[in-house]
Design a binder for these strands. Structure first.
Lengths: 153, 153
DNA sequence: TATTGTTATACTCTATAACTATA
DNA sequence: TATAGTTATAGAGTATAACAATA
């Protein structure tokens, strides 16, 4: 039985994806790459990367959370979380407040400058989301989200 | 109406994902990160990264293809494709053959050493694929693949 | 002993700009 | 002029190991 000829992508101009065509993991990465590229195009300040926006959004939704919990939620190493928090703190958008109950850790909080960025980032990521969903019906988008959450949970 | 409390991830320990929970793009990235981590764990030689394995697999399936077509199919920049081909060529797994019809470009081919890696990589990526699909029914995996191809195409 | 966070280090990935060679 | 590929450069992301401070 012949492999179904799969033009995953017009840009591929008929390249055969071999065993990669059968790998959901590979397709996830390609879809994510496409979305990250769109998001980067939509973001005026190129230092505001997807990961850094995610960090800011997570602190916004969870004021006082710690770097460890941040790194676990985004599946980053602790050093990566340190650097991301450093980035926002240096720009006056995030604060580390000492936790009197556990002086090893910090509570993370947004400054007013950081809070002001949240709705902007929500809007930018909504735009990239629209170009993603444009290729799906509403029902398909709902189903895709459900399946992704099932994988991640 | 309150946002549905979404524990995307146990590791998040109840962190609220804020607007990220509504972004398929974010969920795609998280799912891909999980899969890439699993793939890296399953790969004995840590220099054999996901991207490099993809490059080898694509040349295996398309002997004689060029670096430009490779970069388009994997959505890499041309310099990134150059570096990936350099990597495999330095290790004796890939050859650049001059194309007599267009001496600007090379035809890419695997050496016997490169060919020997293809089934190994197919097996490694199949293992990571199994842990991904473990969380889905067969019908869900089929549907997820269909939706991802729709996004990528 | 274990945990939180930082620093040092190294490697991967990625892109843009400028370049050479060829078409 | 346009295309294929390379080099130079820089920045982003990532991880491990070793460390300090605290629990």
């Amino acid at each position: 039985m012949a492999r179904p000829t799969m033009a995953i992508d017009d840009a591929g101009q008929g390249l055969d994806y071999g065993f990669l065509a059968d790998r959901i993991g590979f397709l996830l990465r390609m879809a994510s790459v496409i979305n990250l590229a769109q998001l980067a195009r939509d973001t005026p300040d190129k230092a505001h990367t997807s990961q850094r926006m995610s960090v800011l959004a997570l602190v916004a939704a969870n004021p006082g959370t710690s770097q460890v919990r941040l790194s676990e939620a985004l599946r980053l190493s602790r050093p990566a979380a340190t650097l991301a928090v450093d980035f926002w703190q240096e720009r006056g958008c995030m604060e580390r407040r000492v936790d009197p109950d556990d002086r090893r850790s910090y509570g993370l909080f947004l400054t007013p400058a950081g809070e002001a960025l949240v709705p902007l980032f929500a809007e930018i990521s909504r735009e990239a989301e629209v170009s993603l969903r444009d290729r799906l019906t509403e029902a398909e988008a709902v189903e895709l989200r459900r399946l992704l959450v099932k994988i991640i949970d």
